[in-house]
Design a protein around this nucleic acid. Structure first.
Length: 433
RNA sequence: GGAAGGGUGGCAGAGCGGUUUAAUGCACCGGUCUUGAAAACCGACGUAGGGGCAACUCUACCGUGAGUUCGAAUCUCACCCCUUCCGCCA
């Protein structure tokens, strides 16, 4: 939610953001006029209430014959109040609906562009993995090594669902433990969150549970949705809180499952594990004072980079362009790991995303911090540590060998308990006639 | 899922249709006293929004939403949450 006073004072910075993001269906002029009308109507409601309060207080001191006329006067006022109140409620609803559509502002140096090809590379680690053979993609490797099963996922649940099998089940758990150890070392406050959340909590983080654009699954007949990221439930955890100034910045980490409808996400670009409806994720989150949020964003990206360096995955860090930002994000960095099986000859593919949401979410979720003499909205940030499905994809593709076996990244060997995934003698398919 | 009880300021806790401006206590903050502290005393002490240059003033908020009433923390209905017991179950 944006700060309406800031918007009225400075509509240009919001107009600029909307244009650069190419956000549709936002009408700032209408929003401002509805706000002003709402305010005037609110004043009328309050005046009427003040009159009614006065009358009902005076009623004890009024003589018996006067009482009747005083009550009648009150009744009259109440009828007027009902009309004005209905108008106010209507305006309030209109105002909220319009205000919810306004995206966060942007810093001056945001790269321009509407798609991810306008993102700007800011750093690079390693070089794209070279092979002296033609590498397989993770779907082929998953089949050959009996590690992934998309057909069974489709049969059981639907397209873009999958089974992890054998060593990948262990690899997933190893990656989680690896992430947890890093969280512990960095002193992050750790959470394992519910995988369902109320819809107002979803909206608090900037997710829209309803409408055709929605990316979330809703539970029929209930006020609950499957979460798309732990960012949502961490937001719920922190909602309606006031933090001590000296306790900030607070850094969190959470494990959860993530469910996304990803309507229209099919196609070669998104094959296999790259874009799926369900995956596990280790997420980071921070609450800071406004002046610290940009430094904290750098800190989150640094932890992410440490993870991918330790995993030995080549990556680049990109600054996300205006049109590719979600509406809560003020500034965002993605890490893209090298994926040898993506596209024709390998491509970088997004594995993390770190956003500074400034006060956009904290206004909706009511997350504040207190100084000696006032309470202010805090800033919130979020960043991926490990999206399990995509990192497993990257490990399989980057660590494959000529015979189809896959080496385990050194840092994970102790976690998984073996150093290589060998080509099995028998596949599950061989059990069938 | 069933039954009973409950949800009031930072905390504890009264109020159960109109002198409530939500009592009282504790905590916190400022002050007096003191070498300093404690105690005692005095004062201030919620959030959000509207109007005003301002001193100030008005409105809303007692789990949430609706309703009854001139007037609701108090009465009615629905929902949410908590506690205890029963049932079911990893």
């Amino acid at each position: 939610m944006i700060d309406i006073k800031k918007l009225i004072e400075n509509p240009e910075i919001y107009k600029d953001s909307i244009a650069k993001r190419n956000t549709k269906n936002v009408d700032l002029d209408l929003l401002i006029s509805v706000y002003n009308e709402k305010r005037m109507t609110q004043q009328k409601v309050e005046d009427l209430n003040a009159q009614i309060n006065k009358i009902s207080k005076s009623i004890g001191n009024v003589s018996a014959d006067e009482r009747k006329s005083v009550i009648e006067e009150g009744q009259k006022l109440k009828e007027t109040l009902k009309e004005v109140e209905a108008k106010f409620k209507d305006l309030e609803e209109k105002y909220v609906a319009l205000a919810l559509c306004v995206p966060n502002t942007l810093p001056e140096d945001t790269p321009l562009g509407f798609e991810d090809n306008s993102n700007i590379e800011v750093r690079k680690f390693g070089e794209p993995t070279k092979f002296d053979f033609k590498p397989l993609d993770h779907v082929e490797l998953g089949k050959k090594l009996d590690l992934l099963d998309f057909e069974a996922g489709a049969k059981t649940t639907g397209a873009k669902f999958y089974f992890f099998k054998n060593e990948v089940v262990m690899l997933e758990n190893a990656l989680k433990k690896f992430a947890l150890d890093i969280f512990k070392e960095k002193g992050l406050y750790m959470l394992k969150t519910p995988d369902l959340a109320r819809q107002d909590i979803l909206m608090g983080s900037g997710f829209n549970p309803r409408g055709s654009e929605s990316n979330v699954y809703n539970l029929e007949g209930m006020d609950l949705s499957l979460i798309a990221t732990a960012e949502i439930t961490i937001g719920g955890y922190l909602s309606n809180s006031v933090f001590k100034e000296e306790a900030l910045p607070l850094m969190f980490a959470a494990e959860s499952q993530c469910f996304r409808r990803e309507a229209g996400g099919a196609g070669q670009e998104n094959k296999g594990l790259y874009r799926v409806h369900q995956f596990d994720k280790m997420e980071m989150y921070a609450v800071t004072k406004p002046e610290d949020s940009n430094a904290t964003l750098e800190k989150i990206v640094a932890i992410e980079e440490e993870i991918y360096q330790k995993l030995g995955l080549p990556y680049r860090v990109v600054r996300v362009c205006a049109g590719d930002l979600g509406s809560p994000a003020y500034k965002k960095f993605d890490i893209e790991a090298w994926m040898p099986g993506k596209g024709e000859n390998g491509e970088y593919g997004e594995v993390t995303s770190a956003s500074n949401c400034t006060d956009f979410q904290s206004r909706r979720l009511n997350i504040k911090y207190a100084t000696k003499d006032k309470k202010e909205f805090a800033h919130t940030l979020n960043g991926t540590a490990i999206a399990l499905s995509r990192v497993i994809l990257a490990i399989l593709e980057n660590y494959q060998q000529k015979d189809g076996s896959v080496k385990i990244p050194e840092v994970l060997m102790n976690y998984v308990g073996f150093d290589e995934i060998k080509v099995p003698e028998k596949l599950f398919e061989d059990f069938k006639v």
